[in-house]
Design a protein around this nucleic acid. Sequence first.
DNA 1: GCTATAGATGTAATAATATAACATTTGCAA
DNA 2: TTGCAAATGTTATATTATTACATCTATAGC
Lengths: 168, 168
Amino acid sequence: MTHDGRNDVLRPFPDQRHDHDACRSEALAQVVAACAERGLRLTPLRRRVLELIWSSHTPVKAYDLLDRLRREHAAAAPPTVYRALEFLVEQGFIHRIESLNAYIGCSEPEQAHQGQFLICDSCGDAAELSDPDIAAVLRRKAEMLGFQLDVCTVELKGRCARCETAAG
Amino acid sequence: MTHDGRNDVLRPFPDQRHDHDACRSEALAQVVAACAERGLRLTPLRRRVLELIWSSHTPVKAYDLLDRLRREHAAAAPPTVYRALEFLVEQGFIHRIESLNAYIGCSEPEQAHQGQFLICDSCGDAAELSDPDIAAVLRRKAEMLGFQLDVCTVELKGRCARCETAAG
DNA sequence: GCTATAGATGTAATAATATAACATTTGCAA
DNA sequence: TTGCAAATGTTATATTATTACATCTATAGC
Ligand SMILES: [Zn+2]
Ligand SMILES: [Zn+2]
Ligand SMILES: [Zn+2]
Ligand SMILES: [Zn+2]
């Protein structure tokens, strides 16, 4: 695992100067590949919504996407955005952050999965974990209670290391 | 820990026939005590909203509360409900379920805390855990990443043991 | 008991988030 | 080609939540 600020599991928050074009294009390429493999249509609209979501590591709200989309696509309306979001979420290409009513690109879109999210109250960025220990303890507790577990929503708010350092 | 269907940590979902009046009145009494201790005003409106939330173990939506409130209090409007909810959430007397936009009574309101929730997709009931193992693993992971953890949202969806059994 | 004040509630309007319903267009397979 | 299913366009509406300002109420200090 490298220390380039993107891939190290111990540093899921990207640093300020990382090559974000690389983040975006890597994610896009993985999604393009997954669509080809699954026989799905990544239409220009869906692709554009995904690109807009990947414009940063900060979760994006549906109506912010709509505003940006309208600049280049006058016909865009709420269903335009919500349909694209529905497709992208269903396929695991993005995740919805329930506590923010917002959406973020999935860092491992090749196969759908449930992540956990760290969300910085200070800079707004969010980072995805796919932590097996967290998943395991939740599975174990559910099982002990006879609860047939389906969806796990884990959203952790606080301050990221970068902001914590900056604040002194 | 008894096996009366309410208190056993291994069976956080109440059974169908439990004495729910006891759930509600116990919660109310604890909240009354906490308000007295903290010098807070549990006004008739706040108290009534809390009672309505405690009418079941299913998370309640703000506008459903509003509808019920209006039957007995014609002046009720959205801010009436949202202000009461804000007070109750701030004090830890209820919790907000982010993934449902709904509210549920806290099972341990004496001191504010963060719980985890199991939510049954079948019957709609939710059960609160205050599981130290879950809390610990989240704290540990956040710490490893230099993330200053503040709020943990853990909401687990699936099917409760009761519904699982009923479905065969 | 007054009365000033802070907190709680009333009231109207609107913002923010999301979906329903039906028409039209497009891509693709028979 | 032509027919169908999927995607998008279009309009309207549902749901969730907040802002702003007016009024009322409990109570602490006089
Ligand atoms: Zn990046
Ligand atoms: Zn930050
Ligand atoms: Zn009960
Ligand atoms: Zn159930």
